[in-house]
Design a protein around this nucleic acid. Sequence first.
DNA 1: CTTGCTTTAAAACGATCGTTTAATACAATT
DNA 2: AATTGTATTAAACGATCGTTTTAAAGCAAG
Lengths: 226, 226
Amino acid sequence: MPDDAKTRLLQAAGPVFADKGFQAATVREICELAGVNVASINYYFGDKERLYVEAVKEARRIKADRTPFPDWPADVAPETRLRQFVETLLTRLLSADAVPWPTRLMMREILDPGSACKELAQEYFRPEFEMLLGILDEMLPPDTPDYRRRQLGFSVVGQCVFYRLAGGVVSALVDEEELSERYDAEDLANHITRFTLAALGRTPPLGRQPSPPAKLRDIVPQESEN
Amino acid sequence: MPDDAKTRLLQAAGPVFADKGFQAATVREICELAGVNVASINYYFGDKERLYVEAVKEARRIKADRTPFPDWPADVAPETRLRQFVETLLTRLLSADAVPWPTRLMMREILDPGSACKELAQEYFRPEFEMLLGILDEMLPPDTPDYRRRQLGFSVVGQCVFYRLAGGVVSALVDEEELSERYDAEDLANHITRFTLAALGRTPPLGRQPSPPAKLRDIVPQESEN
DNA sequence: CTTGCTTTAAAACGATCGTTTAATACAATT
DNA sequence: AATTGTATTAAACGATCGTTTTAAAGCAAG
């Protein structure tokens, strides 16, 4: 027999908590899904909340194992690394339909920080956020203040997590065929990377260059090449 | 002058639902806060869920009244309008500590679409999203496909809502003084607007200029790469 | 004052929650 | 074989949930 009752319980708890949240999830549903008695939760974990904490920790572990960030060789261009970082993050976030529950559970914990899981979420996100800042650093002027680097990192992350956190709104604002055609991880990674690189000046800007009726700007053509 | 029991109930329900969510909020707490009997909810609204729907609707109404988007005169530059749009959105989102509950309640509904409130949220957000797209349109090339305009709009909105949806993570990743100093609505609006305008080419790019252009990589074969 | 209707009040209902209890089955140790 | 400790079970416990019941209080109109 591969799994004992305790691990079966832990495996069953993750999806249920991810689906319904801590309050709405019931111990009876989890136990039934795990095929164990209702008393087992209290026997193995003490109470429902401790099981929840363990489930969040396991979600973190699973997500870190699956879709790990590549450790690039030192000579990879920052543009490429940014692109891969964004796509990895988006793949994690948008895989909710296929392999959902660890991501969903962690998202719940982010939005509604409960118990002692807030610091846990921090310790999980900080190293990856620092990795992103390291990538951006190579493209920023050396005198960029730290708070501005972080705000820039949040701009990148914010564009990504938006599609998960507010996915309901997105799918309500775009029709279904465009949604299935243009909003997978790869396309969104293309867009976000291009948007970010354009803001950093590593790529031609996305807007129209000439602003003919602009009277507030000088007409002197100081922009000349691209 | 003294509100009747029904409106007192509605006013009390909003903050409680916003704080605890639908499941965790109890009718007894709401009734005690409103100073009415527990049976009043069922008398006036039928059941708890119908009261919740009404609370969400009222939150939407309050939020639309407060902090409305300005209707600009026709000759205002799109840069200015974008800046004001972003700051208005951020002010709504980040006022959670001061005037919190309608925003918080709607955020809950976005993240965890319950009942028939999804379409309601859509009808609330669509016109304002279209307003944003109208602003961006003036700065985009005329041949920009529609799906790309929307993705760009989501990039702007995503940067903004991130600070509310993932505010717990943000406050865990930056120390307290930087948080209170650099993360108010005005500073964030500055950053996001600058970031977006730079991506569109309306503003000098944020990155370091002197560096081998990315295009060279495609032309000249670089040294060993995987 | 009575009538008819709306509103408020207290109490209890049935359901379900998380948790505990007490008894049993099993395996290893003495 | 007896004992010890762990694992598992069915059942019940107490608390709390949303909801319903029942009845009384308020109140305008006849």
